[in-house]
Write a protein that binds this DNA or RNA. Structure first.
Lengths: 173, 173
DNA sequence: ATTTACAGGACCAAATTAGTCCGATATCTT
DNA sequence: AAGATATCGGACTAATTTGGTCCTGTAAAT
């Protein structure tokens, strides 16, 4: 666990797709659905969210579509996640002081704010430009090892491919 | 969103509680439930998971209970999260190469592994000793500002307090 | 005017998560 | 030896969240 949601996952795929387009034209929902192989209604929904969050500009009407609101290097992972699933907040108290009724007795708000800040810093440094850069994909791969407690074999799969009611085989994104 | 699960949240509270105990005695489930004000069955369940993951040692029978398996400084946030909700993996492909059927067409495994690594690094550096240290709580608070996209007012609350079917007021953890 | 495409939500089904409970086993006390 | 106290492991249910679809309205181009 500790995953981003599927919608966010898809959203980043879509953003990466848009980042690779060299022209400045608007790309419509159907086109992006074809390119990413993601279900059209889902793509549409995600594009709307990204637009509302200010990551995309939209053009209505015929010849309309979407384009990045700013250069890929200025769109961080934090922004992408925030756009699609709300602020990066590992706990309620990390960003909403006063929301938790136990706040007075539980002395963990401070630590959580620190932890959350550390995660945000890490995610802030990585941008859409890094993600969409094809050479970056090969670099940085398996270049570190982090021992995991409880890394059991129950990989449980799932989470990355859209549900396909007809086949047990995930058809992937 | 992008939250840890409630169980993990509780688990860290429990671990912090155990870390503050100065004696080397085993503390039982009921005692910890009283101290943390968390529902007894939930505390029990969490303690079992933490034991299975190797973060706690358990003692059976009368006078039995739980104690930390090692010093708080040697228990990182990554380990705590991993123990209760599986490995820290923002996407499937970040830790399970081959699990996603789109892996060949989607060029994002590399980036995701990097992103995941960055988050793990951040979470690795913070330990139970930091969390349980009362002076650390005051420090590190509001000492940074990270602009968030989409930080709307829909705080939506919730997630931090156990469900109480009888009262609409969350009774907190 | 018609066509194309975004905007915003309502809505349902499926999957996850939270929380409870039970029988079995191990250990201490008397 | 018997009884009391705790953990162990897992089954089970209810509530919440998420994923995904669809429908009505609005804006722009032809």
């Amino acid at each position: 666990m500790f995953r981003i949601s599927r919608i966010t996952d898809y959203g980043i795929v879509i953003l990466a797709q848009l980042a690779t387009q060299t022209d400045d034209a608007a790309h419509n929902s159907r086109e992006l659905s074809d390119q990413t192989q993601l279900p059209a209604p889902v793509v549409s929904k995600i594009l709307k969210s990204l637009t509302r969050a200010g990551l995309l500009d939209s053009v209505r009407g015929s010849k309309g579509g979407y384009r990045l609101a700013r250069p890929p290097a200025q769109i961080s992972v934090v922004q992408m996640i925030s756009a699609l699933e709300g602020p990066v907040a590992m706990t309620e108290c990390a960003i909403h002081p006063g929301a938790c009724s136990m706040e007075s007795s539980c002395g963990l708000q401070g630590p959580w704010q620190r932890i959350n800040g550390a995660v945000q810093d890490a995610l802030e440094k990585i941008t859409l430009a890094d993600i969409a850069d094809p050479t970056a994909n090969a670099r940085g791969r398996f270049d570190r090892f982090v021992p995991l407690v409880g890394l059991d074999a129950s990989g449980s799969g799932g989470h990355a491919a859209p549900n396909n009611p007809n086949s047990k085989e995930p058809r992937g994104r």
